[in-house]
Each structure stands twice: as C-alpha cells, then as structure tokens.
Simulated assay, not measured.
Amino acid sequence: MNHSKLFERVTLGTHVLKNRIVLPPLTRQRSSPDGDAATDLMATYYSQRASAGLIVSEGTQIEPRGQGYAWTPGIYSDAQISGWRKVTQAVHAAGGVMFAQLWHVGRVSHTALQPHGGSPVAPSAIRAEKVKAFIATGPETGTLIEPSDPRALSPTEIEELVRMYAQAARNALSAGFDGVEIHAANGYLINQFISAHANHRDDQYGGSLTNRLRFLREVVHAVMEVVGPGRLGVRFTPLFTGTDQDRVYIGLVEEDPHGTYLEAIRILEAEGVAYLSIAEADWDNAPELPDSFRRDVRSAFSGRIVYAGCYTAERGTRLIDAGLADLIAFGRPFIANPDLPERLANGWPLNPLDGAALYGGGARGFTDYPMYVESRQDHTTEATA
C-alpha cells in the first residue's frame, strides 16, 4: 500500500510540517526528582524523534497540585522552564516543531504528591476509580496507589486555575515551545469537569452540558489569548458505548458521547483552535470510533485533526485518504523507533518495544533504541570484521 500522504508537507498555523506523522504526548517519568524539571536526557530523547512533523511533549503539570505521578515534569517554576528550554533548543536544532502539553490530573492523585499532603482537587468530591496514581518510595523506586479522596474546588479556585493555564502557556512560549496543547482527555481535570460522572456541581460549572463545558471554554479562551492563532491544540478521549467497561475511566464514557464531544469541539472551532487531537482506545481489540462521529467531527471543525490509538501506516493513510484526518500520531512505535518516519517510508522493520522500561529509570528504553541505518552499519561492520 502507498503511504505517500503520510509524508506530505502540511501547514499548522505558521509552520509547514515536514510530514503528517506526530509524536503524541507520552508519559515517561524521566524528569529530575528534585524539582520535576526536564533533563538533558529528555532533550536527547525528543531530538532523536525530530523527524516527526509535530512533536507534542509528555504532559507537563501546570502547578504542583496537578501532579498524579512521580517524576513527571512541570512548567510552573523557573528551573522547569529552563529545563524545557534545553529540550526545545535540541529539537529545533534537529529541525523539529514542538508543542507543550499542559496537564492537570485533578482527582487522579494522592496526598503524597500534593503540597503539604493536601487532598487532590476536583470539580466534585468524588473519588477516582479504576485508575492509579504513582508515588515515589525511594530515589528510583515507586509504587502504584489508589487515588486519595479529592475535595471540590470553589468557584474562586476554578478562576485561579484558568489563570494558571494561561501562565503555563506563557511559560511554554518562554521555554521555546512552538505552541501548546491543552490536555482535556484521559479522565484528568478538564475531562472531569466535562463528565457527568465526575462533575456533580450545582453551580455555573455543573449540571447542564453547557455548564460542564464552561471550564473547558474558559481555559481555551485564556490560553488562546496568550498563544494566538495557529499555536493551540486540544486533546479529547471520546469513548463510546461498547468500550470495555473495566477501562472506561480512561475517558469517562458519557451517556451521549457523540453529542457531548461535538459540543466541546464547537467551542474549539469558535475559538479558532489550530488542531484537535482525538485519542482513541488503545488496548487490544478496542472498538474504533463510529464513522458517523468522525464525519461529524470533520464537519464541525475546520482546523487540523489528529487521531491516535494503535495506528499503523495503512490505517492512518486510509483515514487521511477519506478526508477525516490530517495527521496521525504513533505512540509506542515512536518510543521504540526514534527514526519511525524513515522506517515507515522505506518499509524497514521496527524495533520491539521494551515494555519494562516505559516509565521511570534512565537511558534504557528511552534514548538507547537504535536508528535503522546505524544498526545496519554496525551489523555490516561486524560481518566484515
């Protein structure tokens, strides 16, 4: 099958992306343990993958309460901004374009990760289920743990959080990012406000769908005022009925996901958001999104559309050919293959994924995956020695 459309140039705001392949946000837990700042190792990791048309950073928490996992990076301190600046400089030197994903986990956290051991914050005091936080138990050891009971945010605190998102966007630009992506997916804070399962508020931020979307609307508007057109993306996980009910926490399946997320997407369209990223269920035998939903998404949104979730070159090309997607994100394959676009373009075999080294640690399973050409040269040298 011809995958040529994957390798076409495409515009995103003022940028001309070299191809339609995206490195999506992938939690790797390699930030500095003494300040949650991006490291030199992370700069190497991202620059190795700069052949992607677009790189989106792993989720980077906008404030200390936004952390749900040990060793994930932030973007609220001077040290964190400086750390990310090293990353963006390395990516730009390698010819890449990189956006920062702005993240707040909300209730998916534990008191051990919260400032002064406080309760995680959420739209409502409803404990997260079927999901784990991750806390450090030693310098390089940690454990998964049930999230703590959250407390409900006050309206004043919600307004403060909107301002924190805007400040995080300013910090991202200061760090050299080309734009930002708002994380409104995977059962985290903005997703919690959207969901009728997690949001039982009776004020202007809860009840009706319009009210449950208010926080999203305010955050998108505030961040857009900072970054401007062409520099903002938003990520959703609109899971549908039929999804494995043991996994629904990932996207908080709504009674009417089609209507819920189309209304959310209309907010992005009204604000002039540059791209919409849709993360699909990514476990084995997961159901695909309905074609009717994909078509309605395309009709409702005039910006670029990115799909992610167990995509192959063939599957992604079909979606682009159908006019339903503009870019395709590859997660695990890009972890194991820093030169993934070249491998897909040439039909070269892929490195296997080291699943035991996905989260935390050092270079193993992070920056030590070989490039295809380099590995072939090493093999030839050994054969002729």
Score class of each variant (00 low, 15 high):
residue 143 T to P: 03
residue 299 S to W: 07
residue 57 S to V: 04
residue 21 I to F: 01
residue 311 Y to I: 00
residue 275 Y to S: 01
residue 92 H to K: 13
residue 95 G to W: 04
residue 131 V to R: 09
residue 101 Q to N: 03
residue 265 I to S: 06
residue 383 A to F: 09
residue 337 N to C: 00
residue 302 S to G: 13
residue 194 I to E: 06
residue 93 A to Q: 13
residue 48 Q to A: 00
residue 286 A to P: 04
residue 219 V to Y: 08
residue 209 L to S: 01
residue 306 V to R: 06
residue 125 A to L: 10
residue 118 G to E: 14
residue 137 T to V: 11
residue 159 E to A: 14
residue 165 Y to G: 08
residue 349 P to T: 06
residue 105 V to Y: 01
residue 85 R to T: 13
residue 55 I to A: 11
residue 143 T to R: 12
residue 241 T to M: 13
residue 55 I to K: 01
residue 248 V to P: 00
residue 353 L to P: 01
residue 307 Y to L: 15
residue 223 V to T: 09
residue 354 D to V: 11
residue 4 S to I: 08
residue 384 T to A: 13
residue 162 V to C: 08
residue 330 F to G: 02
residue 266 R to P: 00
residue 74 G to P: 07
residue 37 A to W: 08
residue 176 G to K: 05
residue 259 G to F: 08
residue 61 Q to E: 15
residue 163 R to C: 12
residue 184 A to L: 03
residue 22 V to Y: 02
residue 359 Y to V: 03
residue 211 N to W: 00
residue 351 N to A: 03
residue 56 V to D: 04
residue 24 P to Q: 06
residue 153 L to P: 09
residue 371 M to T: 14
residue 196 A to V: 12
residue 237 T to L: 02
residue 240 F to R: 03
residue 280 E to S: 12
residue 44 T to N: 10
residue 297 V to Q: 05
residue 317 T to N: 13
residue 79 A to N: 11
residue 302 S to E: 01
residue 222 A to T: 08
residue 226 V to C: 03
residue 40 D to R: 13
residue 60 T to A: 15
residue 251 G to M: 00
residue 176 G to D: 07
residue 90 A to R: 05
residue 278 I to N: 08
residue 360 G to A: 08
residue 92 H to T: 06
residue 106 G to N: 03
residue 199 N to D: 08
residue 373 V to L: 15
residue 258 H to Q: 12
residue 152 A to K: 07
residue 144 L to T: 13
residue 8 E to N: 14
residue 341 P to G: 01
residue 50 A to G: 04
residue 141 T to E: 14
residue 23 L to F: 15
residue 204 Q to L: 15
residue 112 A to M: 11
residue 202 D to M: 12
residue 332 R to G: 01
residue 184 A to R: 08
residue 263 E to T: 15
residue 367 T to A: 00
residue 333 P to Y: 01
residue 288 E to Q: 15
residue 185 A to E: 02
residue 110 H to W: 07
residue 363 A to S: 14
residue 113 L to H: 07
residue 51 S to I: 02
residue 117 G to V: 09
residue 10 V to H: 08
residue 40 D to W: 01
residue 128 A to P: 11
residue 188 Y to G: 10
residue 262 L to V: 10
residue 77 S to E: 13
residue 306 V to C: 10
residue 308 A to M: 13
residue 157 E to L: 09
residue 63 E to H: 11
residue 108 V to D: 01
residue 320 I to S: 06
residue 47 S to N: 07
residue 363 A to D: 13
residue 143 T to Q: 12
residue 217 R to D: 13
residue 229 P to K: 14
residue 29 Q to H: 12
residue 271 E to R: 02
residue 207 G to K: 06
residue 225 E to Q: 14
residue 358 L to E: 12
residue 95 G to H: 03
residue 138 G to V: 02
residue 195 S to K: 02
residue 278 I to H: 08
residue 227 V to D: 09
residue 101 Q to V: 08
residue 304 R to S: 14
residue 3 H to K: 14
residue 103 W to P: 00
residue 371 M to F: 15
residue 238 P to E: 12
residue 218 E to P: 05
residue 317 T to C: 10
residue 218 E to H: 09
residue 290 P to A: 01
residue 314 E to A: 14
residue 91 V to P: 03
residue 11 T to P: 02
residue 199 N to V: 09
residue 61 Q to V: 15
residue 24 P to D: 06
residue 297 V to A: 05
residue 227 V to H: 07
residue 254 E to N: 02
